[in-house]
Design a protein around this nucleic acid. Structure first.
Length: 892
DNA sequence: CGATCCCGCCACATT
DNA sequence: AATGTGGCGGGATCG
C-alpha cells in the first residue's frame, strides 16, 4: 500500500520479476552488478524509482488529478502488478508511469504508510508462520530492506524483536534464519515462567493497586529488578549460549526489552500493560531517577516493540482509563496458557495455526515425557502437594525442542517455579471451586461449563492418596485455566460460564447440577472429560474442529474428538437410564461438558465400585476419589484383571481404562490400578487434551509417563499418547460408567508409533463422527477381550470397528452390556495411537489426523473446516480478540 | 497537545 | 578502516 509499493511491491510480487529485470537491463545492473548480490535487490528500486520519480514529479506538478488517479490506482495495484508482470516492458513502462504518478502524489506517504507495524507485516508476510522444518529460510537484511524499500535500520528493529521471540535467529552478519512460530508457544511459556519470577510480584502488585503502583514501583523495581540485570533472559534458551558471552550491548536493549515486555503481559493477570508502567519497570537501572528523558526514550522503544508484537498478533493497542485519563496500553491477545506447550497461534494465522498448534502441542508434551522421567519424578513430588495439576502442567509446559538439554535444566527450574505459582493459583481456584464446582468452570471458561468428570487415573498410590481430593478440584481448575485458556478461550475464560446452570440447561443435571465434576468410583479410570460446551459446536462438525484445536494444543493428537459431541448427546440420553447413581451426574457432565475440562488425576483408583456414583459435588468427588484409592489398593475387578493384567502398569502407559461406572466393570480397573500402583514410579501423568468443541465432550488424558513399555515412547516424546490413552467422552462417561482401555502395556509399548497414530486417526474420524462416546484404550491389542465384543456392535456399527481395537471393543461391549444405557450408546473403544515419538512432530501427526481435524494451511484441504474451527474458537474469544484475529489473519 | 514513532546520527561491534 | 548493529532522541505526524 505504500506509495512505493509499486517499486517495492513489484519486486515482491511475482510481477516484480519483470520490473526488476527491466531495471536491471537498463543500467542499474551494470552499476550495481559489481556489488554484492544484495545490491541486486536494491536495483529494482533504483531503476524504477528514478524513472518513476521523475514521472511522478512531473505528474504531480502537472495535475492534482493525476494524484487522485494514482491514489485510486492503489486499489488496482494488484491488478496492475499482475498486468505488469504479464505485459512486456513497454506495458510495464506505462504502468510504471501511472503508478508512479499515483505514488507520486502520495509521495508523501503518510507516516502511517511507513510505520514500523506495517513494515513488519510486510516482512512477516514474506515468510510462512510455520515453515516446514525441512526448509530453512534465510533472511538477508539487505535484501529484505531493499525489497521492502526501507533502510536497513528499520529491519533491525523488526528482526530484533522477532529474535527475542525466537522467530528468527541470527546466523551471520546480515543473515538471519527464519524459524516461524513453531516455537513461539514454548518461548512464551519460558518468558512467562521467567516473568513470574521477575515480575510476578510486581505485576500483581500493580494490578491490584493499579495506579498506586507507580509510586511503589520504584521500590518494587529495585527489589525485583535486580535479578534481571542485563543478561538476556531468554536468550539462553536458544542454543547459542555462546553468543551470550559476547553479549555486550547487544543483548541489551531491544531484544531484552522485548522479552521483558512480553513477560509483563504474560505475568499480568489482566493481560493489559500500560506503556508507562512497562517503561518504568523496564527502566530498571534508572530506577529512582526516572529521568524523564530516559523514560521518554524507553517509551519510544516500547512503541517500536509494540508495533512488531502487534503485527505478530500478540498484542493490540488499547487504552486504559485511569484516574488521570486514558493511558496508552497494550493488551495481550496471544496465547495465554501454554499447557501443552503452545497455543497461541491460531489466531494469527488461522489456517496454519491449527495444525501447527496441534503439532506443537503434541510435540511438546511428548518431548517432555521423553525427557522425562526425571521430571516426572520431580513433579510427582510436587504433585504430592499438588496433584495432578502440577504434574500435568509441567508436562505440558515442558519444552519440546531439540535443545532439550539446556532447556531441561532451565525448564526444570522454570517448571518448578511455575508449578509453585500454579499451585497457588490452583489453590485459589480450588477454593472457589469447592464452593461450587460450577464456579470453577465458569471462572475458567464459559464454554467449559460442562461438568468435568474426574476419572481417577491409576497412578501411584502415593500420589493418589493425598492428592486426590485436592487433586480433583485443583486439577480441574488447573486444567481449565491452563488448558482451556491456552486455546484461546482460556484467556478470556473468565467469563462466567454457564456453569452449573448451563449444564443443567443441557438438561441433564442430575446429581450435581452445579458441580461440574463428577467422580467416578470406577476405579481405574481417571479421565475426566469436560463436556464440550454446548456451544453449539456439538451439533456440527465444526465443534469437532474446535475440539481438535484444543486437543491439538493440548497436544494430544486426539483426532477423534469431533464425533463425540454427538455421542455425548446421544449418550446422555441413554446414559441416564443406564447409570446408576452417577449416571445422572455424568450426564450432566456430559452436557455441561461442552466445556471440556478434563482433569486427570493421578490417582489410583481402585475400584470402588460405587465410588463412581458418588458424584456429587466436586468436593465430594474428591473424597470419593480417596475412597477409590483405597479401593484401588485392593484390586478387584477380576474381569479387567485379565486384560489389564496384561498391562500392569497402567500408570506407565496409562492406559485408559474407561469403564462405566457401573459396577460391572470395575474389576478390570482394579487390575489396572494395581498394576499402576506397581508402577508407582511414575505417576501417571496425563496429558490432557482439552476437548474442544468438536470433541465435544471428550477429554483426553494421556499419560505422560510411560511405563516401561511406554518408555520407548518417552524417549520419543509422545509417550503420553502412545501409551495407553484414555479418552473419555464426557458424554460417554455420562452414559457409560467406564471405559477402560486396558493397558496394553506391553503391546502398546511395543507398538509405538505408527500404528497407533494411524489408528488414532481413523477412529477419530469415523468414530467421532458417530458421535458415540468413545473409549479409547490404549491397548486394545492386549487383551483379547474379556468381555465380548458384542458391546461394540450395539454401539454403532458405523464407526466401529475398524478402528476400535478388538480389545477395547470387547471391553466396551462388556461395559455396555452391563449397563443398558450403555447399550443404547454404542461405545467404541479406540486405541489411541499416537505416533509415538517420531510422529511427534507435527508433520507426522498431521498426516494422520489430517483432514478431519487438522489442517495446515498448506495441507488444508478444507479450509472451511478450519474456518469453522476457528470460528468456534473465536466465539469463545472475546469479540476483541476475534477482531484481532480476523484482522491478523486476513493479512496473513 | 499528548500520543506516536519516523528518521537517521553516531557509537560500538565485528570483520 | 570498513562495515554491521543498533541505541537514541529530535522533531514530524497523528488524533
Amino acid at each position: 500500500e505504500n506509495i512505493f509499493d509499486r517499486c517495492r511491491m513489484a519486486p515482491k510480487t511475482p510481477i516484480k520479476n519483470e520490473p526488476v529485470d527491466l531495471s536491471k537491463q537498463r543500467g542499474c545492473t551494470p552499476e550495481r552488478s559489481p556489488i554484492t548480490p544484495v545490491k541486486l535487490i536494491d536495483r529494482p528500486q533504483p531503476d524504477p524509482w528514478t524513472p518513476t520519480a521523475n514521472l511522478k514529479m512531473l505528474v504531480s506538478a502537472a495535475s492534482p488529478d493525476m494524484r487522485d488517479r494514482e491514489k485510486k490506482k492503489e486499489l488496482f495495484r494488484p491488478i496492475e502488478n499482475s498486468e505488469q508482470s504479464d505485459t512486456p516492458d513497454s506495458l510495464q513502462y506505462d504502468m510504471v508511469d501511472d503508478s508512479t504518478v499515483d505514488e507520486f502524489e502520495k509521495q508523501r506517504p503518510s507516516r502511517k504508510q511507513k510505520s514500523l507495524g506495517l513494515l513488519c507485516q510486510k516482512f512477516l508476510a514474506r515468510y510462512p508462520s510455520y515453515p516446514l522444518s525441512t526448509e530453512k529460510t534465510t533472511i538477508s537484511l539487505d535484501e529484505v530492506a531493499s525489497i521492502l524499500g526501507v533502510e536497513r535500520r528499520r529491519i533491525y528493529d523488526i528482526v530484533n524483536v522477532l529474535e527475542s521471540l525466537h522467530l528468527v535467529s541470527r546466523v551471520a552478519k546480515n543473515q538471519y534464519c527464519w524459524h516461524g512460530r513453531h516455537n513461539l508457544s514454548q518461548t512464551l511459556q519460558m518468558l512467562q515462567e521467567a516473568g513470574e519470577l521477575q515480575y510476578g510480584e510486581l505485576m500483581t502488585f500493580f494490578q491490584h493497586k493499579e495506579q498506586d503502583l507507580e509510586y511503589k514501583l520504584g521500590e518494587r523495581k529495585k527489589e525485583t529488578i535486580p535479578d534481571s540485570q542485563g543478561r538476556p533472559l531468554l536468550d539462553f534458551s536458544e542454543p547459542d549460549c555462546t553468543s551470550a558471552s559476547a553479549n555486550s550491548r547487544k543483548d541489551k536493549s531491544l531484544r531484552i526489552m522485548s522479552q521483558k515486555f512480553v513477560m509483563l503481559f504474560l505475568v499480568s493477570k489482566t493481560k493489559i500493560v500500560t506503556l508507562d508502567i512497562a517503561a518504568k519497570i523496564l527502566i530498571e537501572e534508572t530506577q529512582d531517577t526516572v529521568d524523564h528523558s530516559k523514560f521518554k526514550t524507553k517509551v519510544r522503544r516500547l512503541y517500536d516493540i509494540a508495533n512488531v508484537l502487534t503485527s505478530l498478533g500478540l498484542i493490540k493497542k488499547v487504552h486504559v482509563t485511569e484516574e488521570r485519563g486514558r493511558k496508552p496500553a497494550f493488551k495481550w491477545i496471544g496465547p495465554v496458557e501454554f499447557p501443552g506447550k503452545t497455543d497461541e497461534p491460531r489466531r494469527h494465522s488461522p489456517a496454519s495455526d491449527p495444525l501447527p498448534g496441534m503439532q506443537r502441542g503434541a510435540r511438546a508434551p511428548f518431548q517432555t515425557c521423553a525427557t522425562g522421567k526425571q521430571r516426572f519424578t520431580r513433579h510427582a513430588s510436587f504433585s504430592g502437594a499438588q496433584p495432578c495439576e502440577g504434574t500435568r502442567r509441567k508436562v505440558s509446559s515442558e519444552p519440546n525442542s531439540p535443545r532439550q538439554e539446556r532447556q531441561d535444566e532451565c525448564c526444570s527450574k522454570m517448571i518448578n517455579l511455575a508449578a509453585v505459582c500454579r499451585q497457588k493459583i490452583e489453590e485459589d481456584t480450588r477454593n472457589k471451586a469447592c464452593a461450587t464446582g460450577t464456579i470453577l468452570n465458569s471462572a475458567r471458561n464459559p464454554s467449559i461449563t460442562s461438568p468435568l468428570s474426574l476419572l481417577p487415573v491409576p497412578g501411584d498410590s502415593d500420589f493418589c492418596v493425598n492428592p486426590l481430593p485436592q487433586a480433583v478440584f485443583p486439577v480441574v481448575q488447573a486444567d481449565v485455566p491452563s488448558l482451556s485458556l491456552p486455546n484461546g478461550i482460556s484467556s478470556q475464560a473468565p467469563h462466567p460460564t454457564t456453569p452449573a446452570t448451563s449444564k443443567t440447561e443441557n438438561g441433564k443435571p442430575t446429581l450435581l447440577p452445579s458441580q461440574p465434576f463428577l467422580c467416578f468410583p470406577s476405579s481405574s479410570l481417571f479421565m475426566l472429560c469436560g463436556g464440550l460446551q454446548e456451544n453449539n459446536l456439538r451439533e456440527t462438525l465444526p465443534a469437532a474442529g474446535d475440539v481438535r484445536n484444543r486437543s491439538a494444543e493440548a497436544q494430544a493428537a486426539v483426532p477423534p474428538g469431533a464425533c463425540q459431541k454427538r455421542s455425548s448427546h446421544k449418550c446422555s440420553s441413554p446414559s441416564a437410564p443406564v447409570d446408576d447413581e452417577e449416571p445422572a451426574a455424568k450426564k450432566q457432565t456430559v452436557d455441561a461438558s461442552d466445556v471440556p475440562l478434563s482433569l486427570v488425576v493421578p490417582k489410583k483408583p481402585f475400584e470402588s465400585p460405587k465410588a463412581k456414583s458418588t458424584p456429587g459435588s466436586g468436593c465430594t468427588s474428591a473424597e470419593h476419589l480417596e475412597d477409590f484409592h483405597l479401593d484401588l489398593t485392593s484390586p478387584t475387578a477380576p474381569e479387567a484383571a485379565d486384560k489389564e493384567s496384561t498391562k500392569p502398569l497402567d500408570s506407565q502407559e496409562q492406559e485408559k481404562c474407561c469403564q462405566n461406572k457401573d459396577p460391572d466393570q470395575p474389576s478390570p480397573r482394579k487390575e489396572h490400578i494395581s498394576k499402576e500402583n506397581a508402577y508407582q514410579p511414575f505417576l501417571p501423568q496425563y496429558l490432557y487434551v482439552q476437548p474442544t468443541a468438536g470433541l465435544s465432550s471428550f477429554n483426553f488424558l494421556f499419560s505422560a509417563n510411560q511405563a516401561p513399555g511406554a518408555l520407548s515412547l518417552a524417549a520419543s516424546q509422545l509417550p503420553s499418547l502412545s501409551v495407553p490413552c484414555v479418552v473419555m467422552p464426557s458424554a460417554a462417561l455420562a452414559s457409560f460408567p467406564l471405559v477402560c482401555s486396558p493397558a496394553i502395556t506391553s503391546p502398546l509399548s511395543s507398538v509405538p508409533d505408527g500404528s497407533f497414530s494411524a489408528t488414532s486417526v481413523n477412529f477419530s474420524m469415523s468414530s467421532l463422527a458417530s458421535a458415540t462416546p468413545l473409549f479409547i484404550g490404549t491397548t486394545a491389542v492386549v487383551t483379547p477381550k474379556v468381555s465380548p465384543a458384542p458391546a461394540v456392535d450395539p454401539q454403532q456399527p458405523a464407526h466401529p470397528a475398524p478402528h476400535l481395537s478388538p480389545v477395547l471393543a470387547s471391553s466396551c461391549g462388556a461395559v455396555k452390556l452391563d449397563s443398558p444405557a450403555c447399550v443404547g450408546h454404542p461405545v467404541t473403544l479406540l486405541k489411541l495411537q499416537q505416533p509415538s515419538s517420531a510422529p511427534l512432530t507435527p508433520k507426522s501427526i498431521r498426516p494422520v489426523c489430517h483432514e478431519a481435524f487438522f489442517k495446515t494451511p498448506g495441507s488444508l484441504g478444507d479450509p472451511v473446516a478450519w474456518k469453522k474451527n476457528e470460528s468456534n474458537q473465536t466465539r469463545n474469544a472475546s469479540s476483541v480478540q476475534r477482531r484481532l484475529e480476523i484482522s491478523s489473519t486476513s493479512p496473513d
